[in-house]
Amino acid sequence: MGTNGLYEEVMLAGFGGQGIILGGKLLAEAAMRAGKEVTYIPSYGAEMRGGTANSMIIIADGPIASPMVSRPTTLITMNKASLNKFGPRIKNGGLLVMNSSLIENKPELDDSIEILSVPADAIALELGNKRVANMVAIGAYVQNRGLFGVNIAEESLEGVLAKRYHKTVPINIEALRRGAEFASK
């Protein structure tokens, strides 16, 4: 129950429409395929577009008790409002992945927290579709944490994208790779 081995609590947050729910689902699917235990809770309800959205993902070696993430070991934040809200909750020794295209300044956090600034929107625009910024950030996260290979995330895309979006698999894969490359620099 998190006493031994891996116990990663991820909070993925941003505007509705930034692919927060999809991104969380991808992380969960990939973690499952990598043989991990995983729970994933999306925010739900009246916040379909424009409001704030978040995903809570727990990835562990053993069974997961509480599926709620109140103090994440990793925060992946796509906008400033979410950083302000969830940044102070990051556990010491944790990781912040932030979309530096929309967040100008690094926040004041405990020194033990690693900050990975990824210009996710800018990289996505280079690829020709701003909507894959979520995948850039996730690629960077996967590369940084190394819980499973970026290839597993790539393979999981078809499983989490609705069939009508399957034609976007290649650009999503490209975005994951670019994020991973950025993080390995």
Binding site: M32, V38, Y44, P67
Partner: peptide, 10 residues
């Protein structure tokens, strides 16, 4: 409850 209904697990 709302969490169990929305939550995904293997």
């Amino acid at each position: 409850d709302g969490i169990l209904g929305q939550m995904m697990e293997p």
